[in-house]
Nucleic acid binder design. Sequence first.
DNA 1: CGCTGTGAACCATTTCACAGCA
DNA 2: TGCTGTGAAATGGTTCACAGCG
Lengths: 253, 253
Amino acid sequence: MATGRTHRPATRSRGIPEATVARLPLYLRALTALSERSVPTVSSEELAAAAGVNSAKLRKDFSYLGSYGTRGVGYDVEYLVYQISRELGLTQDWPVVIVGIGNLGAALANYGGFASRGFRVAALIDADHALTGKPVAGIPVQHTDDLEKIIQDNGVSIGVIATPAGAAQQVCDRLVAAGVTSILNFAPTVLSVPDGVDVRKVDLSIELQILAFHEQRKAGEEAAGEAAVPAAARKQPAADQGPDGDVPAVMPA
Amino acid sequence: MATGRTHRPATRSRGIPEATVARLPLYLRALTALSERSVPTVSSEELAAAAGVNSAKLRKDFSYLGSYGTRGVGYDVEYLVYQISRELGLTQDWPVVIVGIGNLGAALANYGGFASRGFRVAALIDADHALTGKPVAGIPVQHTDDLEKIIQDNGVSIGVIATPAGAAQQVCDRLVAAGVTSILNFAPTVLSVPDGVDVRKVDLSIELQILAFHEQRKAGEEAAGEAAVPAAARKQPAADQGPDGDVPAVMPA
DNA sequence: CGCTGTGAACCATTTCACAGCA
DNA sequence: TGCTGTGAAATGGTTCACAGCG
């Protein structure tokens, strides 16, 4: 979900639904694997299984791109790989900067998945002078002072923020001012950006919390009756009121 | 969204929409920040701004939890923190294991956001004997051989997979067999799991590809020269290199 | 009066089911 | 005949707009 105020009201011309765009990389990955095994064609059923979706959805998705299949046969793997790559803009080179070279930033710099598609880590940037010049994943870290120059010299339009939360907005502002128009944010903060700038966020803690929600519910169902919930809680900075079951509760204070 | 074949047919009783659940951690984070600043109450408008959503959505979301606000006033911060925490299951302790202690696994182990909520890193597991016993983030890495025992001894129900793609399904199967019912997957693979097991995935490469799609489109619009997005993005025309020739993204390890 | 809570309208996405082509 | 491509229905989510309460 793009976070920024990026609600393009009506994506003119080739309006591909956002949900479809989000699945294209999935199809691409599955197709790439098939391509490596020299599989010439796939049916929507097979490809859907490999991508983890159902076949009707896949066919509908592809129908937004055009009619690239052959009835009675399926899809040509190589051809589809190319079409999807092109649609995603992966047939061009995307220089990317990573700002914040801590544990996570270093992991990202080393992540093979970047280079393998159209992405290229153009620079690593950190505010810590002690890191400046030190190579991480074979690339010397540069100092934040030079951020603007780095962006401009490399024609970077995509930035990755892996700084602590406190620094993220500031870094974001500088990236945007320097010309970056797409940001992948790993810092646990809501970034505000001007219109026209896309932000996507990845938040580990949020993902875990969503899992916890479902996990909790499973535990509840399991113990059919009430009064279940194992030895719970160790958290309680909560408000005065705070039994367990949801009392019709009225606000305290 | 949860990836696994986890279509629970009818979430009875407290049917909180998935989309709402996904936003609760966002609200919680914003509320926690307010709580730290000792702000007693917030309006839906203010809280929505802090969480990066609009106020109508926020109010609708909260209405699924119950009526925790006061008309004419707003929401009591502490009380809401408690209610949302409880709803998400964060009032209990969730031991988590991280499998695959490469760059990413180490970054995750060091990630403060885990511990700060109800999550506790119960164990780090890796297949590399050279790592066994070595402390990462203060926790000694254990060997994959002991995976089942570790899961059971610690009562772990949430597992994080940060292994290379090739090992992910196997690790997943073992985790599930040992009793794990929620998985956060960082490996670029579609995991198949039995019903009742939730899988969420985080894929860096996919996020970047989605950004690239929008970025490419911006470049196109710009060329059309309209009274649109001023964004001064520039990117290398880039050699429209071959359609394929890319390697499957493999996670660092 | 101000702000929450919520029915109802609206919009996006998914699923169904089948027509139509190779 | 088999599988794609796609209208149409169903579902899920968002936004509107205002009634109702503190």
